[in-house]
Write a protein that binds this DNA or RNA. Structure first.
Lengths: 184, 184
DNA sequence: TTAAAAATGTTGTTTATCCAACACATATAG
DNA sequence: CTATATGTGTTGGATAAACAACATTTTTAA
């Protein structure tokens, strides 16, 4: 385990910036938030912002990934398998995350957000698959992870759009047999 | 007005340290608080502590002065005179401050705290006296400020010790005529 | 359309913070 | 007594953060 301890100043400042951004996101839309706003709120120098992030879009990506990771509680799946329980848990994490986001007014960036979610899901699924199928063809597992990520994400989109009278749990559960036992 | 803006890092770090110290003071006695405790709580490096403060006693002094200053609301007296109203206000500020302290367990440092309070009082009184008696003998005003500081402080000690059935306002008010109109 | 104002990114220099290491003092226990 | 541990205060070198200045681009208003 390579643990190159990161300088506490970095962790502190990144946290200041991210917290400031989330605070501002609750008040105004993404398109109205400037770098100056963020550095004012975070009480750091504007140049320091650019030391940590490419630009405001880079910040958006990293904040979303981080919040999503917390929602996914990645460590919890670190040592478990893909099964009915974990699939339901992940699916509800996604729907919760999206509900939380919808209050935060990131209109116009749905596609970015969607990509981030799928990327995170892909990572999580791939890890679980590799653990579950040691020694098997990595490429096949990779493609499977991609399809699972898109599938789960798509299901969450459709659930939000159409069927909110069914709980997320019930919604995804109806498809699980086909996932777990195969289409045949 | 010379306003040499201080580096925001300094303000931040000092606040972290002071907040950490006050937080710890609520939990354990002063004698059981180590520098390491403080820097852990403040999430800063131990060496950084010594960049800002001589030692833990220096920190104690500065925290108390600052808290006291806030209690005294120094600016409020900045442009006013010594009269019945301000004397009562200052006296109650002191008694409030000491009540707040007594919950914070600084046992064994009463004398240090007393000195800090008197020093602060002296500064406040001297400023008010100078404004009130422009052009008069500074030394006389200085000594008067010293006596007022000791007197007001002593009165607060005696009030705490003996007469808590009288309000601070009533207690000090009984002596104000002799202060304002003189002993004769 | 144009001029002023505000936001973005970048750069070089200075300063505050981090870190590891040190000598020294003060317990605490075997 | 002695060894082990814990706290104090200091140092030198490395690095993150502050700051001011600049050229560009984008917004805003007139």
């Amino acid at each position: 385990m390579s643990e190159a301890k990161t300088d506490p100043r970095i962790l502190r400042t990144r946290k200041f910036i991210m917290d400031a951004f989330m605070e501002l996101s609750a008040k105004k839309e993404f398109k109205d938030i400037t770098v100056k706003d963020i550095t004012n709120e975070a009480m750091i120098n504007r140049a320091t912002f650019y030391y940590h992030f490419e630009d405001i879009y880079d910040l958006l990506e990293k904040v979303l990934s981080e919040v999503l990771l917390i929602n996914l509680d990645c460590n919890a799946y670190e040592n478990s398998e893909i099964n009915e329980e974990t699939l339901i848990s992940i699916f509800t994490a996604i729907t919760n995350f999206q509900n939380a986001l919808s209050n935060r007014c990131h209109r116009g960036y749905e596609e970015t957000i969607a990509r981030i979610i799928r990327e995170q899901l892909e990572v999580v699924f791939y890890r679980m698959l590799v653990r579950q199928h040691e020694g098997e063809d990595k490429e096949g597992l990779q493609v499977t992870a991609v399809m699972l990520a898109w599938g789960i994400y798509g299901a969450s989109v459709e659930w939000r759009r159409n069927v909110k009278d069914v709980t997320p749990e019930a919604y995804i559960q109806s498809a699980i047999p086909y996932l777990m036992k195969g289409l045949s």
